[in-house]
Design a protein around this nucleic acid. Structure first.
Lengths: 237, 237
DNA sequence: ATCTGAAATCTGATATACCAGATGTCACTC
DNA sequence: GAGTGACATCTGGTATATCAGATTTCAGAT
């Protein structure tokens, strides 16, 4: 008995692995193609070929087909039965993805303000504090990670699994682009101020304010990304 | 030459058929399974089996797999590699789908108010007039069709292809449920009033008002659908 | 030179076979 | 009787062959 107790104490605390975590060929292909499209590797209207992709990846067409169906559901390509697969992503598409994310993220911020509790609020404010430090030191990688943590906290506080998943699909820029942005001290400061005021609004339970601030934040930072990825300024409305 | 001219004049004006219109087995399966899930044919957490589905539909597993990947991207099922496919749709999921649609549809209404022009505005108001007539006569089928026309007009005025497509996927009720709703005169009148004021706001170019009205309309009518599909009232917030 | 349309060819769509991880069963051990 | 682990079996994942619509090519007719 004593030994058993000691044994339990010594056992390494292996974390439970997420069943959906294991990497399938399909998932790898999905991410690779998606990322290529979003980074602008293909022109709008350009055709993709299932067999050719299969050959490039060195796999059969089955996982390619499944990945393409997924990418199609995201609206990034269009499948024309027996004719081909055409790229749909464009600057306009990217603009609308930002708007979609702004709409959804502000909705989730509103709910988070209504549903958050003390401990969650404290965590959110703590994250903002870490952001303040990282902003001063200019640690881009840390800021990128904290940014994700920040939005994750809000998603969790909102208790909206579906909305959170939907928002994930509206992201068209990756870490490499984010890093470029966070090199600019002015941009870093703007983002920090916005994050701080959003956190305050949520903790204070001010749903309307949180919603408005979040939308402005997503739209503004989205436009900054747009100008980097597509190299031109969005026309004012 | 003269004959050619006459010929052109006599040629029936066949419309160009949409290449994506033809139906594939995959698409049929996609719609059938999606519809079944949304109508509550499966309990949350229940498992689907690819082989079994293939047998039921009388086809191979390939189109089944592709359809399931699509449905997975909509968040209605979750694929656990080598373990199974689990239903995720639930009342909570439906609530969030309504919120997502409210967020997106209000965003698109805002843009429509900014971007609409004279002829489009006239069409929208004309649609509302037809709705008034149909509401009085209580023609449910006509109302359902006009409802779709109404929202389509707004989507087109907004010039947002991506957002419009995204919104389509947030619909969890079908014509049969809509018909039940439109049997209630009170509900019909409410919907008509909302549609009329939304149209007015858009035509007047009042983006903020159009946005607010659209959101309230989607949330309110969504809750009515919820109570029908899931048979209980949503708790007030 | 232009037009026609049959045939070659390209593409995605579907069917089938097989692989490997996950799960369940149950004889065997202690 | 409780625990163990080999094995049968179930599931989705992947590879391959074949089907059929769409497009292109190009010889032959005008």
């Amino acid at each position: 008995m004593i030994e058993a107790k000691q044994g339990v104490g010594r056992v390494a605390a292996f974390e439970r692995i997420d069943p959906a975590f294991q990497l399938t060929v399909r998932d790898h292909v999905y991410r690779a193609i998606r990322s290529a499209i979003l980074s602008g590797a293909f022109a709008t209207g350009e055709r993709l070929n299932e067999r050719q992709l299969a050959e490039q990846f060195g796999v059969s067409t089955t996982p390619i087909k499944e990945a393409l169906r997924q990418i199609e559901m995201e609206g990034l390509v269009e499948t024309l039965p027996r004719r081909g697969i055409a790229i749909r992503f464009s600057m306009q598409w990217a603009e609308e993805m930002i708007l979609a994310r702004a709409a959804l993220e502000s909705m989730i911020a509103r709910l988070a303000a209504k549903r958050t509790d003390k401990p969650s609020g404290a965590e959110l404010l703590a994250t903002v504090d870490l952001m303040k430090t990282a902003t001063k030191s200019g640690d881009a990688d840390q800021l990128i990670a904290l940014n994700e943590t920040f939005h994750d906290h809000i998603h969790r506080s909102s208790r909206c699994g579906y909305l959170a998943k939907l928002i994930e699909r509206q992201q068209f820029y990756d870490a490499s682009i984010r890093r470029i942005i966070h090199l600019d001290p002015t941009e870093r400061q703007k983002a920090l101020d916005e994050h701080a005021s959003i956190a305050d609004a949520i903790v204070a339970g001010d749903a309307d304010l949180a919603e408005r601030l979040m939308r402005n934040h997503v739209v503004r930072s989205g436009e900054t990304y747009l100008s980097i990825v597509f190299g031109k300024q969005k026309a004012p409305e």
